[in-house]
Simulated assay, not measured.
Amino acid sequence: MHHNNQLSSFSTSTQASNDLDLSTKTCVPCNSKEMKPMTEDAAHSLIPQVSEWNLVNEGGSLKLTRSWKVKSFNKGLEFFRVIADLAEAQGHHPDLHLVGWNNVTIEIWTHSVGGLTENDFILAAKINELNVHGLLRKKASD
């Protein structure tokens, strides 16, 4: 009987590990010559894994963007501090915008290749996992 339990718990854990989560991966150094930006198709296949991020094409360069509304200008700066610590740890730095005192937009792309790489999706997934709820405005119910 005990043996069966072990089997079933084993099968559920392998199930989970097959679906390797982007947020558990680490950014790889982007200075390698072989690194090329991914195609729009590849980007579209990954975008469902980073909820609330949008794919934008700026003059032929793909970028990931996501916006938040923060409670105050200072909370926006705190938000950026949290993002900065993550970016430093990953060695991959997003573009940060704080507009109109409480609108925060983050753009992620791999500057060295002029487009998107898996690193960008990894960073977006990790940003999605940050606990920043205390810094954000409650969604206006409209």
Rank of each mutant, 00 (worst) to 15 (best):
I106G: 04
G59L: 00
T26A: 13
S11T: 13
S45H: 11
I83V: 15
S9A: 11
S17I: 10
E129K: 15
I83L: 08
T117H: 02
V28M: 14
K33C: 02
L123W: 06
S8I: 15
K63F: 03
S112R: 08
T105R: 15
F10M: 14
L116R: 00
N103S: 14
E88V: 09
H3R: 12
D19M: 07
D85I: 12
S51D: 06
S17P: 00
T117D: 02
S23L: 11
S23F: 13
R137V: 07
L136W: 01
A124Y: 05
G76H: 02
A87C: 12
K138R: 09
V56R: 05
G100H: 13
S141C: 08
A124S: 03
V28Q: 15
Q90C: 08
Q90H: 10
L98E: 09
I122R: 10
H3S: 09
T110C: 05
E118L: 10
F80L: 07
H97N: 13
K71P: 00
E58A: 00
V56D: 07
T12E: 14
L86H: 06
V50H: 06
L64K: 03
K138T: 12
V113Q: 03
L98R: 04
V56M: 04
V104M: 12
C27E: 10
K126T: 03
H92T: 04
D120R: 01
N18G: 12
N31V: 05
I83G: 03
V50N: 01
K139L: 07
S72C: 01
P29Y: 09
H92Y: 10
T39E: 07
N5C: 05
R66I: 00
H3L: 10
M38G: 02
S67L: 00
K63R: 13
L7I: 14
L46G: 02
K25F: 08
T105E: 15
Q6E: 15
L98T: 08
M35F: 05
L7F: 11
P94C: 02
R66C: 02
L77V: 14
V113H: 00
D95A: 07
E58Y: 00
I122P: 11
K36F: 00
M1C: 06
F10Q: 13
S45Q: 13
T117R: 01
